[in-house]
Amino acid sequence: MTTSTGHQGVPYEEITEDAYSDAFAHGARAIPTRRGVLLDGGCPRCAGQMSYPLVDKVFRSPLPPGAQVPATNSKVVAILCTCPEDHPARPDGERGCGAYWNITLSATT
């Protein structure tokens, strides 16, 4: 199903493809915020418009076991689809369509 905004309501699936990184990097913006960077762009799988907040620090919180928090000065950052649209078969507590990919984030100034 394709909405008027171009979003495709594909079923939720935790999936990655080599082309995702390039597709996201092509149209995405990195917006500096007071806490890090906000990555704004379209999901390369479902085309949903999404924002992915990268922060260096979070308020004291028990992390899930084994979880890693990528720092904003990392060259390679893993992100996933966080589009707010509906996707069939999406488990409770999950966001987006399930797609994930890596990008390279580099400071220019």
């Binding site: 990655t16 990555l39 996933l80 994930y100 990919w101 890596n102 390279t104 984030l105 400071a107």
Partner: peptide, 22 residues
Amino acid sequence: QYQITRAPQAATAVDRRAARAQ
């Protein structure tokens, strides 16, 4: 200011867990 470019390697399940944790 930051620039977004293609990553040199494809994401793995570990990357997905890190992204989800973020």
